[in-house]
Amino acid sequence: MIKKSFLIFFVFLLTACSKNDKPIIAFYYWKTVFKLSETEKEVLKDNNVEKLYIRYFDVGLNPKTTEPIPVSPIHFQGNVSKFDIVPVVFIQNKVMLKSNINVDDLAKKTFRLVNEINVKNNIVCSEIQIDCDWTLASKENYLRFIERFKKLSHKKLSATIRLHQVKYFKRTKIPNVDSGVLMYYNMGTIAPDSINSIYNHQIAEKYLKSLKKYPLHLDIALPIYSWAIHIRNQKVIGLRSKLNVAQLKKDNNFEQINSIFFKVKKSNYKNGFFYEEGDMLKIEPIAAEDLKMMGEELNENLADTPKEIIFYDLDEFNLKNYEKNIFEQVVSCF
């Protein structure tokens, strides 16, 4: 009887432990040259990060021939031997929208280039990720591409999933992959109004209830970047990366109007872009409190616990906006 009771307790203990397993912390790396700064190395070490999702190249269309081509393949200047590397290929949706696209040929060429980059840099990977915001019009080509790529690679295959693809999965369909990564950002429209297009709780609520019904396991990607929306005459003329409130406060060419809006006082060039007197910049940041709110609302609505929380993206500019233990705090929400 004692042995039986102990066995029941032991099984219960194992079950409890498995339920309480926290997701690991991982990062996306989205530059064209892989070279970690000291700050980036420190964050990876402090958070015991062993896995990096590295953008290998984009797939776009040749403007002259409209044929698919690789865009800006990555160059490695740093050692990645201590990390589990997941190559990520971003495929522009316009590629999949081509009615006469040769999906088999595209899959072969995409896998070949991933493999060439791996061989050149002595990287052995067990997983590849395909990133594409496919639509109803492009889904057939995309789903066929995934099928073909999976057969070619013989590796674990993951795919990025957007909120609209979760909510309307019966129409958008589910790619034949081993797991998905929910991109929990870029929710709103890029516009001159005050709503943050990267994350907005009210917009998120329209999709959250759908998560429990989604049949594919989802890991989570969360944003740690910010950008500025460049506005002229109440019209958006572009997105400006690597700009934040602290930077603009120090620049006499810009006047702070409120917590997120700056006005150009004097025409000037900044970071390679021209700002005309009277232009507006709308800063869209992601605060630590936003990240924790994301973690809490996702935890309440996901069908199962994610194995990974992947932060987008690993960049010294982004990392300096957060306290040292923010990533552990967010993961503890799950």
Rank of each mutant, 00 (worst) to 15 (best):
F57I: 01
L218C: 03
Y28P: 05
V88M: 01
N47L: 01
N79T: 09
P306S: 04
V119T: 14
F6V: 15
L163D: 09
R162I: 00
I220Y: 03
S153R: 04
D178M: 05
Q77R: 10
Y207N: 06
H230W: 11
P215W: 12
Q256D: 09
D21C: 14
M187G: 08
P175M: 01
T172I: 13
L113C: 07
F317N: 04
K155R: 14
F169L: 03
M183W: 01
K151Y: 14
L281Q: 00
N48L: 14
N200K: 02
E140A: 11
F311D: 03
G272C: 09
P68Y: 10
L248V: 12
V114F: 05
Y322K: 03
V114G: 03
K22A: 11
I310T: 12
N200M: 01
V124H: 13
I237T: 08
E127W: 02
I257H: 01
K265P: 00
K167E: 09
I123K: 02
C17R: 15
D279L: 02
P87S: 00
G180W: 01
K242P: 07
E140N: 13
S267T: 09
N258V: 06
R144E: 13
V236D: 00
I220E: 02
A107C: 04
G272L: 08
E140P: 04
F317C: 01
G78L: 04
T172R: 10
I174G: 04
G295S: 00
V11T: 03
T110N: 07
H217Y: 12
K250V: 03
W227Q: 06
M1V: 15
K250Y: 05
I229N: 06
I257E: 05
N115I: 03
S72H: 13
K209S: 15
N79C: 08
Y168V: 09
Y142Q: 06
Y142T: 10
F274D: 10
F83M: 04
E328G: 09
C17F: 15
G60E: 08
V59F: 07
N48W: 11
L182H: 07
S267I: 01
Y269V: 13
T172N: 13
S138W: 00
S241R: 14
M293F: 15
V103M: 03
T65D: 05
V11L: 11
R112L: 13
S138Y: 00
Y184P: 05
D313Q: 06
Q202N: 13
T172C: 11
V330K: 00
N301R: 12
R240I: 15
E127N: 07
K209D: 11
F57A: 01
L152C: 09
I229Q: 06
K3V: 15
V103R: 02
S126F: 14
K35I: 07
L298T: 00
F254H: 02
L143Q: 06
L113I: 07
K98I: 03
I8W: 04
K45S: 14
E296W: 06
N253D: 12
P73M: 09
D46I: 11
I8C: 04
I91G: 07
